[in-house]
Nucleic acid binder design. Structure first.
Lengths: 311, 311
DNA sequence: TAAAAATACTCCATAGGTATTTTAT
DNA sequence: ATAAAATACCTATGGAGTATTTTTA
């Protein structure tokens, strides 16, 4: 058996079709058929149920598929270690970023990241928190950029910055009410939230419940942009973290961003990665670059409400 | 790269010597040299520090070694899955057994195990509890047979039987004291224990401390046999689990085994194995065979003090 | 009768062998 | 001077190709 055979198995599982799997693996269909048959003979068990239309993994095939994926992931790591030792500042980084951070943070960091690591290739994937954790465990990504803490046994966390929440309301919605936004202020406000799965939903829900405010039950936004649109047309209010607030202040003329009363709700944004990763130091440098970028962004917009962590 | 190259790396790490590593891998020294050089070129990094006397893994080598071991373990599993699907009752089982169970339990089970699974190959390894857990995580063994519970996240436990403790004392040591052994009985007794690392040591220590008795500080037995010898020459007493007690009753004329007062101290012996193992059912059958063997053993010696668990 | 997988065969890249040289104490 | 690793060169297994046949909805 060789590594290639395991890739064939993975491709067959994905496509359920010898021809397509062969294409994906860049070999001819007979090659894949032949090699796969040899694999089955070597293992002494049929790995596929050959159906009329395509093929499906047998029970043994599924059990072996799992291991094959793990082996492939470990093999990728080995190659990455090779590249790393040739040049620790080069190689590639696959980064999972939550949707409520990515679009608001990355544009301000990318130039600095490129300057910091000119030979590094960055691959950003927008994922929800649980997807990031899962992908990290399966070594499909190297880094997660999300709201901490996730309390995962085998992952290491590194805080980059803290951001305060602001209450996003329709323009002029404040009326005569005094700032900052306190519990009384929130009475009778319609609370709009993201749909399940977004960590921002949980964070917002918690901070509003702390202030005895409950969710608008008949609506859940599937994206931040939907949420913004709903607020702009006056359907309700929602708490948003600072970087989103900054973006909205500049883009959305129809939304006001109001500060909360103390204790000002905050969330911590940071990195997670496999414990004892060989690229630990690299990740920490990367965190510093992001922290600096955020600090610059805040300074530029003449605000100082983001608190950078003390190292 | 292929699987063989990873075996070469593992062998080179073990032997620190190309010639010996080549022998272990059943290839010639030049073959190993050549293949290994190619591997280093493929990865673009030296994996060995070539010293005058032999070789040592470089930092990159060590990092890759870890992954190589995991890959090898996964690969072994794949082959085992193949064998399993050919014949679920055949194949091989690598079993780690604690020293205070192995010699007293296995001789009574082996015949039944062979009868239950005539085509199975058994490899028993005497290991301490933490070694078993470690080896299971690294997939170097399939099963652990030890005192439960170990509370490991990724391992599954299956109780086989409970055994009571007896107090082993020098022949006639009881004197005029009444049975069963209670707290008062134990006053001024010299307590002998195994050395650190044996789970029996911890179990005995705990039950004696519950009875306000403390250890003899200037001695620790490195094996159960040493412990028995020490008791036979009148150096002290120790609690032993039932199967050891039974063995000693028959073998050691110079030791008395006395029952404890209620609550009679007990320990649970059982299996641990990787969660969701494909051989779960097999393992459970195996547990049943051991349970039956123990029950028969107890019945034969006309004792009924071992409580079999209710399934 | 079409689409998909299996078979037949050919080719060559490479893992592995033996013989030998180089290197380092 | 000796032990160990590297190099040179040869062999043969097997992975991958093209052309073709078999299978089955």
């Amino acid at each position: 058996m060789n590594f290639r055979d395991l890739e064939y198995l993975i491709a067959l599982d994905q496509h359920g079709h010898f021809g397509k799997a062969a294409q994906e693996c860049h070999v001819s269909q007979p090659t894949l058929s032949g090699q796969f048959k040899k694999l089955e003979q070597e293992l002494g068990v049929l790995l596929l149920d050959r159906k009329a239309k395509g093929v499906v993994l047998s029970e043994a095939g599924k059990a072996i598929l799992e291991r094959a994926k793990r082996i492939t992931a470990e093999l990728n790591q080995i190659h990455e270690i090779g590249r790393f030792h040739q040049n620790p500042r080069a190689g590639s980084l696959r980064i999972g970023v939550i949707p409520t951070v990515g679009p608001y943070l990355l544009p301000h960091c990318l130039k600095n990241l490129r300057k910091g690591f000119p030979e590094m290739k960055y691959y950003f994937h927008e994922m929800k928190t649980n997807e990031i954790i899962h992908a990290l465990h399966e070594r499909r990504i190297d880094l997660g950029l999300l709201a901490l803490s996730v309390h995962e046994e085998r992952l290491e966390e590194k805080v980059i910055y803290k951001e305060s929440f602001y209450l996003a309301v329709p323009k002029g919605h404040q009326g005569g009410k005094a700032l900052p936004v306190n519990e009384k202020w929130l009475l009778n406000e319609q609370l709009l939230l993201l749909e399940e799965g977004h960590c921002l939903r949980d964070q917002a829900l918690k901070l509003c419940q702390d202030r005895r405010m409950s969710e608008m039950t008949n609506f859940r936004a599937s994206s931040i942009e939907t949420l913004r649109a709903m607020i702009e047309i006056g359907e309700g209010v929602t708490p948003v973290p600072e970087l989103i607030a900054l973006a909205w202040m500049q883009q959305a003329a129809e939304i006001d961003l109001l500060p909360f009363s103390t204790p000002v709700p905050q969330r911590e944004i940071g990195l997670i990665y496999a414990k004892h990763s060989i690229r630990r130091e690299l990740f920490n440098e990367l965190a510093d670059i992001i922290a600096t970028s955020v600090a610059t962004l805040i300074k530029k917009t003449s605000k100082r409400s983001i608190t950078l962590p003390v190292y």
